[in-house]
Design a protein around this nucleic acid. Sequence first.
RNA 1: GUCCCUAUCGUCUAACGGUUAGGACAUCGCCCUUUCACGGCGGUAAUCGGGGUUCGAAUCCCCGUAGGGACACCA
Length: 468
Amino acid sequence: MTVKTRFAPSPTGDLHIGGARTALYSWLHARKEGGTFLLRIEDTDRERSTQASLDAILEGMAWLGLDYDEGPIFQTDRFDRYAEVIQQLMDSGHAYYCYCSREELDAMREKQWANKEKPRYDGRCRHRTEPVAGVEPVIRFRNPDEGDVVIKDLVKGDIVINNRELDDLVIARSDGTPTYNLTVVVDDIDMGMTHVIRGDDHINNTPRQINIMEALGATIPAFAHVPMILGDDGKRLSKRHGAVGVMHYRDAGYLPEAVINYLIRLGWSHGDQEVFTMEEMLKYFKLSDINGAASTFNTEKLNWMNQQYFKSLPAETIAGHLQWHIEKQGLDISKGPSLTDVIEGQRDRAKNLVDFVESSRYFFEDFDSYDEKAQKKQFKAGVDATLQFIHDKLSALPEWNPEAIDAVIKASCEELELGMGKVGPPLRLAVAGTPMSPSLDVTLNLVGRERTLARIEKAIAVIGGMTE
RNA sequence: GUCCCUAUCGUCUAACGGUUAGGACAUCGCCCUUUCACGGCGGUAAUCGGGGUUCGAAUCCCCGUAGGGACACCA
């Protein structure tokens, strides 16, 4: 059978980093098997569903490169079908009206809690034949009383739950709208899901869903319950931990390739390998290799992963991801070296895209002041003469390229009988305004002759203007 | 409280009954070096506790303990 998986978020917030990982696993499983991946929006809770959340989810998926073959399918478009199935369950005796009031149910649960029992509906309306006047009933699924439900989970192994732990869940609200457990079941059946991959916070729903599926005579799909992602306090990752929305990671300067790689390795492994190409991910990924235990999100390692991709991705790809940040930070790169050349020069030292833009400004724009500490240390009396010497040699250069520039700097050191340590730092500060930049030949080459010479002249003036 | 899941360095993990318990991040030292980085070499650091099974247990079983999850007319 052709594999079919889905990602089924509810549009009640950003695309959470944990949801993104689940989506990635589902996507990977479908893609590697040549199957179909579907996006379904579980928006039956109209109170909490928002357009902004939907947009955020779609945006997050797109940014990560998780494309889908079908969808987005909205559950709110399928109410007729849910009503049909609910009627079918009523007709077959698998469901019944329940007239219990909120107060009655609360009292029931309270008593059970007091008796140290698991709060569950006791089925008191199961045999009611007459409606209760003035009460719009809900519809409950008649859960089997005895026997075990076995979840054959690809991640956790077999999970056995006795039907005595389950109760008759509400499948239709008093206003007739279907609830989650019903819609999921109907959709997963109708849409032909072969694998249900979702967070393990759903494990408790699974036996109920299996029971409904069986009542409907449907084939039970395979399940894979993926563990939660925890924050560094060991608690389930949430807004309290700061960055949970996927788009936050774009904003913070992470490369989607790095986020994907970090996410796949969080809770899944293939021997000792850390960095995977997409081809390798598709080749090696197996649901059964997902770790059954929850894992803690670690930003330090994500940072490292981001740097790995910074170093290895084609400059053009990085340039593409950079566009958004360049615009955001208002950097004009129209006058200056080519962006890909700057990427080649900076890729070993940039931590992320935000940092990249910030620390590459001097390639494109002039600066008003120098790094304070460095200025104090490097711009001392006498240095102006050194800079002047180099300036003259550079201006006489027939060709402006790294090799020629390097030769000038080395020759200057020799002629002035100074070590590179005396010449390099002030020259760098003069041209870049900061003590951090690629090697001098690369830096000056990228800054360009005209700008380099002007900046050296300016530095000489600054040094000359200092009180002796 | 009840049920479910989980348990190897601080973190992510490897090990599929026999290893000096391996790798990666972080951290600490050294090297490289014109800055910042990159890189290279090395160090510290783990099988939750107790019982079994076995010639042999991180690995299998049981009991604790701890963490997480679920117990809605939310999804």
